[in-house]
Amino acid sequence: MEKIFRKIKNAYLGMISLFIGMRVTIKNYFAPSVTLEYPIKKKKMAPNFRGMVDLKPEACVICYQCIKICPVAALDLTHKQMVADGKKKNEITKFTYNAELCCFCGLCDEICPTDAIFMNKMYEVSVYDHNQVMNIDLMNENKYKHVDANYSLAAEIKINDLNTVGIIQKSPVAPVAAVAAAPAVSAVVSPTPAPEAPKPTSTNKETA
């Protein structure tokens, strides 16, 4: 007899749980939708967004840092020395970018000392011809025109001025409880003995 009562109670509770679940769904039925109707409406990307790699040719000092840091060797730069007005000057002969290899990590953007190479905000980058993504000439102002007709280097440079990647806070307010700041990241760290032992396990105040 008790078993039958328990079965009936379980069945009743089971039905109630289904109704509770359905109430959640119907509440969401009347909630506003979160869809952005792409491609009719497009979203503007944040200033830190990592799109395709772009270049301000006049700002490049040909330091080769971006080439050295790129983890996948997607950038290729060659330069030559020119003599002008009796002074030696370096000039870029070729600066190409292989968007197929690029992993869009943004390391080149961060390490550039003059912010010459940066990542623009393009995210619609489909092309019909494979060569158009393998050898992108970064010195060309209209390099992405065939991908997006509204592309303009000047507009991308303007958006990039709002980029905050790698920017150190200029005036940190002295807080009440702060640990001393880390030593400036030094190039070489003195040799150390064995790595520090892990701390003993903390008190396990947890509940089941």
Binding site: I26, N28, P32, S33, V34, T35, E37
Partner: peptide, 12 residues
């Protein structure tokens, strides 16, 4: 109906 339940729009 499925779209509105899932907070989407469905065919538009």
């Amino acid at each position: 109906v499925s779209a509105h339940i899932q907070n989407r729009l469905g065919p538009m």
